[in-house]
């Protein structure tokens, strides 16, 4: 780090004498790019040591046996693929990610539209109120949800009984637990979609709507032919990004159900934690989380393609 800044400082005197010939210009350019590289070194070191290396190391780990003495090839992966509980993990992870993201995107879209109708100072206040779920650390708000779902003290069930309905075992049965986990994720994530979509809505030129109104377009037509096409990019990127984050989610399931009942709500992350850290089978745990990789890589590819394409459009 210190090297980085001294390198830049060292580049200083070479700037002040105005470079006349191309030779010193080249040298200047080279010094400049060396200094630039030095400034990036901490970042590069961080990414290589704590992101790239662990990823490769995970691949190596996943091919060892439980005691990490022998190389067993793809046995861990094959073993997992034959396990009923792992099939549930794959199913639940996909169900969880897809349903929760659709719910979040839809809710966020509605909220953004409602918010867009309110202008000025009021919008700030309402936006602030709706952002609260997203601001509270997720593990802590999930604890509160757990308390709300508690089998014997549930405040929801008190309300249901008060209104004359039967109590619901929110976390007690497979599908209830699955829906509860998805509901909590939706509650937490919808505000993020709301602010992204709100920003996108604000960037749609008002004239388009005016022109459409003059041409006699109804509300539905304006939504289909103006709002959605104009927001297409941001919807795509937020949905893809959110799919990645939701697919790899850990906190909610870990705290709310810890995979139960009967391993029916485990996601890749929580299952990897149970297998790898709690039961101490590090290689198999690494194999579990590596199963996420193809999905994440595919999604990341599409996100990246979109972001780069748009950067080009903006630059052009």
């Amino acid at each position: 780090m210190a090297d980085g800044s001294t390198m830049v400082a060292g580049a200083q005197p070479s700037i002040s004498p105005a470079p006349r010939n191309t030779g010193s210009l080249k040298m200047l350019a080279r010094r400049r790019s060396t200094a630039a590289l030095m400034l990036c070194l901490p970042l590069i070191a961080l990414i290589i040591c704590l992101k790239i290396y662990p990823t490769l190391y995970a691949v190596y780990l996943s091919m060892l046996d439980r005691k990490m003495n022998n190389f067993v090839g793809l046995n861990n992966f094959i073993f997992l693929l034959g396990q009923q509980s792992f099939h549930l993990v794959v199913f639940q992870s996909c169900l969880f990610a897809i349903t929760a993201v659709i719910a979040k995107a839809t809710l966020g879209f509605i909220l953004a539209h409602l918010m867009h109708n309110i202008r000025g100072k009021n919008q700030r206040i309402w936006r602030g109120l709706l952002l609260v779920p997203w601001v509270i650390p997720l593990s802590l708000s999930t604890l509160t949800w757990w308390w709300l779902f508690d089998p014997s003290y549930s405040a929801f069930n008190w309300t249901l009984e008060w209104m004359g309905f039967d109590p619901i075992p929110f976390l007690g049965t497979t599908w209830n637990a699955r829906l509860s986990v998805i509901a909590v994720n939706t509650w937490f994530g919808a505000p993020f979609f709301m602010i992204m979509y709100l920003a996108a809505l604000k960037s749609v030129p008002e004239q388009l709507y005016e022109a459409a109104a003059i041409d006699g377009a109804g509300a539905w037509q304006r939504l289909i032919f103006i709002t959605l096409p104009m927001m297409r990019n941001i919807i795509l990127i937020t949905v893809l990004y959110s799919l990645i984050v939701t697919f790899a989610d850990f906190d909610i399931v870990r705290i709310l159900t810890n995979g139960g009942p009967q391993d029916s709500t485990h996601l890749f992350a929580t299952y990897a934690f149970t297998v790898g850290i709690q039961s101490g089978n590090i290689p198999r745990g690494a194999a579990v989380s590596l199963f996420m990789f193809p999905v994440l890589a595919t999604l990341a590819f599409f996100v990246l393609r979109d972001v780069l394409k748009r950067n080009k459009e903006v630059a052009a």
Partner: peptide, 17 residues
Amino acid sequence: LTYLVPPSLLFIPLFQI
């Protein structure tokens, strides 16, 4: 790209590291 790599993918190798 690294921003898109979630912690739940890396926590087990990092445990060893």
